[in-house]
Design a protein around this nucleic acid. Structure first.
Length: 220
DNA sequence: CCCTGATTCGC
DNA sequence: GCGAATCAGG
């Protein structure tokens, strides 16, 4: 989609309103990035926003910007930003009806937690080698309340919307992706835990042996 | 770290 | 013209 007059108009309006570029970007949606917005703004010439541009005065220091940024050949298009959560387990979820109901008696947890099984040969890409690390640190939350029917408990934190999700946050899906209340875990990703926090990576990457603790919903 | 806008440059 | 990559700050 290109910049239609209306969109440009909206852009201007919002920009002059003081909204940040990223805000505008996902307000206009369409997978626009803040760079796109900023770029457009720049081109439109209204970059200097709240600049009290005194017409009569020229400080002669308008925009020398003698910058010479390193321009590595790696440029152009890349998969980044807007894609956001392309590889989250929700991709094929929806009706996968995962049994992983961490019933921590929390708020919304409609149902259907997909289970990203990713324990190929030994482990994922570069995550926890072996499976020893799993027991090492992730479970610090389950001590207080022992869940009756599951020993994997997730942290009791506020799940986040896709907009609030950051690169550093756990992408474990919570709820039904088709519903408005769909969220992501949002806890801090722990290193080597893939896109998840420690707890969820422990669920996601269960060693084969222990995996039966989460018995499939209906195996015939 | 997170974010912000500004600039350059390949497409 | 567009927007990703990058720079430069807060």
């Amino acid at each position: 989609m290109s910049w239609t007059d209306e969109r440009i108009d909206l852009l201007q309006k919002m920009w002059l309103q003081g909204m940040s570029a990223s805000k505008i970007a996902n307000e206009l949606a369409n997978g626009l990035t803040r760079n796109a917005v900023i770029g457009k703004v720049y081109r439109l010439g209204l970059s200097g926003r709240a600049k009290g541009d005194a017409p009569g005065e020229d400080h002669a220091s308008a925009k020398p910007s003698p910058r010479s940024p390193a321009r590595p050949s790696g440029h152009g298009s890349h998969s980044h930003a807007s894609g956001a959560i392309a590889h989250s387990p929700i991709a094929s979820a929806h009706h996968a009806s995962g049994p992983i109901a961490s019933q921590s008696a929390h708020s919304q947890m409609s149902r259907g937690q997909p289970q990203p099984t990713a324990q190929r040969s030994s482990a994922g890409p570069g995550l926890i080698s072996g499976n020893t690390a799993l027991a090492a640190e992730p479970m610090q939350f389950e001590a207080p309340l022992r869940a009756p029917s599951a020993d994997v408990v997730v942290p009791i934190i506020e799940p986040v919307t896709i907009m609030e999700l950051r690169e550093s946050m756990c992408r474990w899906p919570i709820g039904d992706p088709t519903q408005a209340d769909f969220r992501f875990c949002g806890a801090r990703k722990s290193p080597g835990a893939g896109p998840y926090c420690g707890c969820h990576s422990a669920i996601a990457y269960q060693p084969q042996q222990d995996r039966r603790r989460q018995r499939p919903p209906k195996t015939a």
